[in-house]
Write a protein that binds this DNA or RNA. Structure first.
Length: 320
DNA sequence: TCTTCTCGCTCCGTCTGACG
DNA sequence: CGTCAGACGGAGCGAGAAGA
C-alpha cells in the first residue's frame, strides 16, 4: 500500500517536477500532467473484489500483513458489496474516515450512555474498524474514499485521473477535489485552494498528494523501498504547542537499543495530550553532528527548556 | 460470575544509522 | 549518495489475569 515520504514546502514542488523529468529524461518544456487530491487523515483499507463480489477487506498493517476486517468493511455504506462490469479481479484502495459531524454525534451518544468518548476522528475510526463484533462497527458512522488500486486483471485506464473516474463509475466514492494539473504552478494553486477549503470540508485532511498522471510513466518511475517515485505528499503546517522539558530519560527499546526520551509537561497538541517524545540520540539533543560541528537548525535541548512540540503526520510527537 | 486492570498489539509519518 | 529497516508515542481494542 502507498505511503509517502518527503513532505515539502511549496517551492519544492518545482524540484519534485524537475526530479521526475530528470529521471524520465524529459525536457523542461515537455508537457507532464499531475493529479492533485486531498490527503485524507484516516486509515488505509484494501478491498478485494473477485468477479464483482467483495471477498476481502484488509488494513495496511506493516505493508506485508494487515488485519482482515471484511465483516466490518461490509457495514460501511460507501463500500459496495457488489459491482457490475468490473474486471474479474479488482483491488481497490482507499481511506476509511469519520466526518466531524458524525464524530461529534457519536461522542454525544457515547457520553449519554456513560461510555468513553473518543479523542479524535482518526482514532475513533481506527478503533471502530477493529471491533470484533461487526454490529458495533455498523453503529459507528464510517465513510470511505477510494483513491488507488492494487492487483487488477485488466487496467482501469491509461491515466491516474481516468482510473479514479472509472472507480467512481463502478460505484465507489471518490474525492470531488481530485484535479488534473499541468505543472508546478497549477499544483501549488490547487494546494492553496484545498487549504482554503480545509476548515469547511467536514473531515480531516493533512495535506495534498500529487501523482504523475500517466500510468505508463508511473510504471517507469517505479518504487523505492516503501515509497513511489511518482507521488509525493505536500503537507499542511503542523499544529505547534509550547511546553517545558522536565527531564530526559534513557529508554531501552524492543531491540535493546538505548534512546533518550523527553519527559514533557503534558500539553495538548492536535487533540491529544503529549507527555513524551523521542530525542533519537545524543547528537540530536546537542544539535551537533558526529564530528562535533553544529547542525543547521540544531536543537541544543536542555532540561528546563521551553520547547515546541508538534505531531509528525498528526501522529508522532516530536520536538521542533 | 462479574468487573477492573494490565499487557501487547495495530496504526500512523519521520528520522537515524547502516549498508551498498 | 541513494536506499532501507527499525524505532518512536498515543489512542484504542482484545485477551487474559487478578480481584471482589
Amino acid at each position: 500500500m502507498l505511503s509517502l515520504a518527503n513532505a515539502f514546502d511549496a517551492e519544492e514542488v518545482t524540484e519534485f517536477d524537475a526530479r521526475i523529468r530528470k529521471y524520465l529524461g524529459v525536457g523542461a518544456d515537455a508537457p507532464l500532467a499531475y493529479t492533485a487530491e486531498p490527503k485524507i487523515d484516516g486509515l488505509s483499507l484494501s478491498l478485494r473484489y473477485e468477479n464483482g463480489l467483495l471477498v476481502q477487506a484488509a488494513t495496511r498493517g506493516d505493508g506485508a500483513v494487515g488485519e482482515n476486517v471484511t465483516a466490518n468493511a461490509r457495514t460501511i455504506q460507501d463500500i459496495p458489496h457488489q459491482i457490475d462490469e468490473a474486471p474479474d479481479l479488482l483491488e481497490v484502495r482507499g481511506e476509511v474516515y469519520m466526518s466531524h459531524a458524525d464524530f461529534a454525534a457519536l461522542n454525544e451518544r457515547q457520553a449519554e450512555r456513560g461510555g468513553k468518548t473518543f479523542a479524535n476522528p482518526r482514532n475513533a475510526a481506527a478503533g471502530s474498524l477493529r471491533q470484533l463484533d461487526a454490529e458495533i462497527t455498523r453503529a459507528r458512522p464510517l465513510r470511505f474514499f477510494a483513491y488507488a488500486w492494487g492487483a487488477l486483471s485488466a487496467p482501469l485506464a491509461e491515466t491516474q485521473k481516468g482510473a479514479i473516474d472509472r472507480l467512481a463509475k463502478l460505484g465507489f466514492v471518490t474525492n470531488p477535489l481530485t484535479a488534473l494539473c499541468d505543472g508546478p504552478s497549477d499544483m501549488v494553486a490547487h494546494y492553496e485552494e484545498i487549504e482554503a477549503q480545509r476548515a469547511t470540508l467536514g473531515y480531516d485532511i493533512d495535506g495534498v498528494v500529487y501523482k504523475v498522471d500517466d500510468l505508463a510513466l508511473q510504471e517507469r518511475l517505479g518504487f523505492r523501498s516503501t515509497t513511489p517515485r511518482w507521488a509525493i505528499a505536500h503537507k499542511f503546517a503542523a499544529e505547534l504547542a509550547w511546553t517545558r522539558l522536565e527531564g530526559i530519560d534513557i529508554q531501552v527499546g524492543r531491540t535493546g537499543a538505548l534512546s533518550p526520551v523527553a519527559r514533557l509537561q503534558p500539553v495538548t497538541v492536535g487533540g491529544v495530550v503529549v507527555s513524551n517524545a523521542t530525542l533519537h540520540n545524543e547528537d540530536y539533543i546537542k544539535g551537533l553532528d558526529s564530528k562535533g560541528a553544529e547542525i543547521r537548525g540544531g536543537k541544543d535541548i536542555r532540561v528546563g527548556d521551553w520547547v515546541q512540540i508538534y505531531r509528525a503526520g498528526d501522529v508522532i510527537p516530536k520536538v521542533a
